[in-house]
Write a protein that binds this DNA or RNA. Structure first.
Length: 464
RNA sequence: GCGUCGGUGGUAGAGUGGUCAAAUACAACAGACUGUAAAUCUGUCGCCCAUCGGGCUACGUUGGUUCAAAUCCAACCCGGCGCA
């Protein structure tokens, strides 16, 4: 059985923080930098698992704790031997801890805040408003919000239903499905409204059941609208949770699903505040737990220090802050450990991340954009719904290696307009292939010491 | 031929005297989407100027009643159904 490991093959001459490496896992290697496609519920949406392997050719896939815990339930995943086996995938896997849902179902719910804030959103007024609702949410009568049959309703339908219900009974409209305390986070299920309490320990247990090769400590992803006071409070909590995660991971030992060792990453937070990021990276980088191990020969014990195997960089920040935030984080992390930039995947951001020492990325953007008709091209993103593509007989993708190369834009436009399911499939394969291979090409450019040249070449034609 | 019901914007379909350029849905045209509450969401959608807003033409056709008509009346045209 191979264990987790990371080796740096080359450090860039051009960009002092950039490096090329390989992550070893019990299920194979990941050549870094790498883009890891997201399969939240143990499926990369709209793509057959076998086609994902065949056509996307990424080195790994990432699934989500919150979602798989809710359905089908981590026990069932465990009985499959992990989500990897369940989805008939043989390569390396990641699971996210559920920390992002603290944000997306909490502070971000219903207020139109995304992970990447626009600078103009960061007004005092918005921050004030956010403070009122960001913590200590009252969620009255939430059970009524999810009557049977509502599950399939659209987001709009649900929000309308909420609003009507609460207006009628003159109750406060809920701002959140999440309640945060130092102990953990109370989530309401997005499926049926039921209550679930996540602690770092619980997240570890679920992720041991899910069986990913690499998984994350439970963290709090804060809103980009949160002020510094809140960020400090949250960061301390995230650090405390990281320690608890590390301790509990050691107690649990190997994965309950696969019987194999899993690698645990901590998550650097601190919002857009540079001092907090620095503190976070240092704190987590030095964090360890002492483990007593029986020595091979006799009854004596040796004490070893267990550190995190790698680090995620999480949170939300403005586009403008991203570069320095990533940079100060990686500068203060142990160099020899892999770094994963959570939830980032726009093309400019990939270059930026790699330049500042990121080894892996994951992002829903390629698949979500694809389902909504946006496609990556060398000349920027296009919306295949635009009327001009009705009679555009050029290829969806120029690259003959891409599955979508065999189809015309006109055909894909037709599939989208007529709501055929395979539209999402072709578009998703294309977008993932595009991003995965872009990162592979960036990797190559670092190896060949022409990173900046390549960056310029790509970004010059890719406007947007 | 007689009777009856009906003719509304690209389509379907509400509206039956003023708050109607006309609900709603679909279509169309744009836009958004970064650890997946997302096969989702937002905006526009008669014409002309326009930031609020203003002007014009419109609910089969023509004429009428009324301060005011998609809405009431008459005739006509067209369609469904029933009876000859």
């Amino acid at each position: 059985m191979k264990n987790f490991g990371f080796e740096i093959i080359k450090k860039s001459y051009e960009a002092p923080l950039a490096r090329v490496g390989v992550i070893h896992t019990p299920h194979g290697s990941i050549e870094t930098p790498a883009f890891i496609p997201v399969g939240t519920k143990a499926t990369v949406k709209s793509i057959l698992p076998e086609d994902f392997v065949k056509y996307v050719k990424s080195d790994a896939v990432l699934a989500n704790t919150y979602h798989l815990y809710l359905e089908p339930g981590s026990e069932i995943v465990k009985k499959h031997g992990g989500f990897q086996k369940m989805m008939n995938y043989t390569g390396p896997t990641f699971t996210d801890s559920g920390g992002f849902q603290v944000f997306s179902l909490g502070a971000a719910m219903g207020v139109g805040v995304s992970k990447i804030a626009k600078r103009e959103d960061l007004t005092n007024e918005n921050i004030e408003k956010n403070l009122e609702t960001n913590n200590n949410f009252k969620i009255p009568f939430l059970d009524f919000l999810y009557p049977k049959g509502l599950r399939q309703k659209s987001q709009k339908g649900i929000l309308e239903f909420f609003t009507q219900f609460f207006k009628r009974d003159k109750k406060e409209i809920p701002k959140s499905l999440v309640k945060i305390s130092d102990e953990g986070v109370e989530f309401r299920s997005i499926i049926d409204g039921s209550k679930h309490f996540f602690t770092p320990e619980k997240s570890m247990e679920i992720q041991h059941d899910l069986g990913g090769d690499i998984f994350f400590a439970f963290d709090e992803c804060t809103s980009p609208l949160a002020n510094k006071e809140y960020q400090i409070e949250s960061l301390n909590r995230t650090h405390a949770w990281a320690k608890r995660s590390l301790v509990h991971h050691q107690n649990l030992g190997v994965s309950s699903a696969t019987g194999e060792m899993q690698a645990l990453y901590a998550v650097v937070q601190g919002g857009g505040f540079q001092d907090l990021r620095e503190e976070s990276a240092k704190t987590l980088g030095e964090m360890f737990v002492e483990v007593k191990e029986k020595s091979a020969s006799a009854e004596s014990y040796s004490v070893t220090r267990k550190y995190f195997d790698g680090f995620g960089i999480g949170g939300s920040f403005t586009k403008e802050d991203m570069a320095k935030t990533v940079k100060i984080s990686t500068e203060n992390l142990p160099e020899e450990k892999p770094r994963h930039l959570l939830g980032i995947g726009e093309i400019e951001d990939l270059f930026l991340g790699i330049e500042y020492g990121i080894d892996t990325f994951d992002c829903v953007s390629p698949t979500r954009l694809a389902r909504n008709g946006s496609l990556y091209t060398k000349n920027g993103r296009i919306n295949i719904f635009n009327s001009k593509y009705k009679e555009d007989f050029s290829r969806v993708c120029d690259d003959p290696d891409c599955y979508a190369h065999q189809y015309t834009k006109s055909y894909l436009a037709h599939l989208f307009r007529s709501k055929e399911m395979i539209a999402a499939t072709i578009a998703s394969i294309h977008n993932l292939h595009f991003i995965v291979h872009l990162v592979k090409d960036i990797r190559k450019s670092v190896l060949e010491d022409r990173f900046f040249e390549f960056k310029k070449e790509v970004l010059e034609t890719y406007t947007k």
